[in-house]
């Protein structure tokens, strides 16, 4: 069986020279293929004396298994080497940013509007809308602001014509909704409003959120509770809130709502004009004159209304000190939100 040893030696020599998977494939056919050397040896067993066959067969089969094993092991080695090479070649600088990785900024006003809306939705308020270019009737008359009344001085108005104005507040939505639906009502009306006024603390357009709740037993104590709850949610739960008398033609009694200055914590600073308080909301019980205007029975229904400026709340939340930043739309500003 010397030729078997020789064959084994020869195989190992060939195997040592094989460098890639195709050469290994060649080796496999040369030794183990249909016309391969091992196959030939196995076929030659038939010409041996029957007594010798088992021993010789065993040896040949052992060599066959050996070659098989060697080939497989080597193939695996070569595979891993080939993959390693490919991996190395394909390597990239993984620190570069992917295309389209830049995200845009949300406008802070739009962010805070969403937040305010979500808080009221969580308290069971619906959301309503109304036209931004509005009839004088809805913007003023129906809200108990007659034409020759000094209350009109409270709002500098852009006029389109005698009967049509750019709405100066979101309050006309109250009237429009009440005209269409019966109580109970519980909704807010967010949107843009316009005043003929532009200086360091005023822009001719800004955003308000109006709110209205009407039912048979709504009280001023309810108004306080709902607005405190809202302010504690939009600011922090420990924010001090105070209500003080004020005047809006469409509410009676009316209340201005202040929060404790969030910058100086009430000790007095430039932002709160040293008072320790910041005006944040207007509110009040719906004036029965407004109820009469929309055909509600003021003896049966009571309700409260409120309105807030979103710019003011946004400035407080993000520490923005100039209202004009909102409408310059500078990406260095917008990119921060």
């Amino acid at each position: 069986m010397d030729d078997l040893k020789e064959l084994r030696k020869q195989f190992l020599l060939h195997l040592g020279r094989a460098e890639d998977s195709s050469q290994l494939q060649n080796l496999r056919s040369r030794y183990l293929g249909k016309k391969g050397e091992i196959t030939g040896l196995l076929k030659s067993l038939t010409s041996m004396p029957p007594a010798d066959r088992p021993a010789a067969g065993k040896e040949i089969n052992e060599l066959k298994d050996f070659i098989e094993n060697q080939l497989n092991r080597h193939l695996q080695k070569i595979h891993s080497r080939e993959i390693e090479g490919r991996i190395q070649k394909e390597s990239i600088d993984v620190t570069l940013p992917g295309p389209g990785s830049e995200i845009g900024g949300r406008h802070p006003i739009s962010l805070v509007l969403d937040e305010v809306i979500d808080i009221f939705i969580s308290m069971g308020f619906g959301v309503e809308e109304g036209p931004e270019i509005e009839l004088d009737f809805y913007n003023f008359e129906a809200l108990n602001i007659p034409r020759d009344h000094p209350a009109r001085d409270m709002q500098d108005t852009f006029y389109i014509n005698d009967e049509v104005v750019m709405r100066t507040h979101t309050s006309p939505v109250q009237v429009r909704v009440m005209q269409q639906r019966k109580p109970p009502l519980r909704f807010i009306a967010p949107g843009k409003v316009y005043r003929c006024d532009a200086d360091i603390s005023h822009t001719p357009m800004f955003h308000q959120v109006e709110g209205l709740m009407v039912d048979t037993n709504i009280t001023f104590a309810n108004l306080k509770s709902v607005l405190e709850s809202f302010l504690h949610s939009v600011f922090t739960p420990d924010t001090p809130v105070r209500f003080r008398p004020s005047y809006f033609p469409f509410t009676e009694p009316s209340a201005e709502v202040d929060i404790g200055c969030i910058f100086c914590k009430g000790s007095g600073c430039r932002i709160c004009k040293t008072t320790g308080w910041i005006e944040i909301l207007g509110s009040g019980m719906v004036n029965p004159k407004v109820f009469k205007m929309v055909g509600y029975n003021p003896r049966k229904y009571t309700g409260f209304a409120f309105g807030m400026g979103i710019e003011r709340i946004t400035m407080l939340k993000y520490g923005i000190d100039d209202i004009r930043l909102f409408y310059e739309n500078d990406l260095r500003f917008l990119g921060q939100f």
């Binding site: 001023f220 104590a221 509770s225 209500f243 009676e252 009694p253 209340a255």
Partner: peptide
């Protein structure tokens, strides 16, 4: 209503205790 406002004002808005409205869910 104007008189009710006078009552509230002189009584003090701060003395009116908040109370959550009872509503239909």
């Amino acid at each position: 209503f104007d008189l009710i406002e006078e009552v509230a004002r002189l009584y003090g808005y701060h003395r009116i205790a908040s109370s959550a409205p009872v509503i239909r869910v």
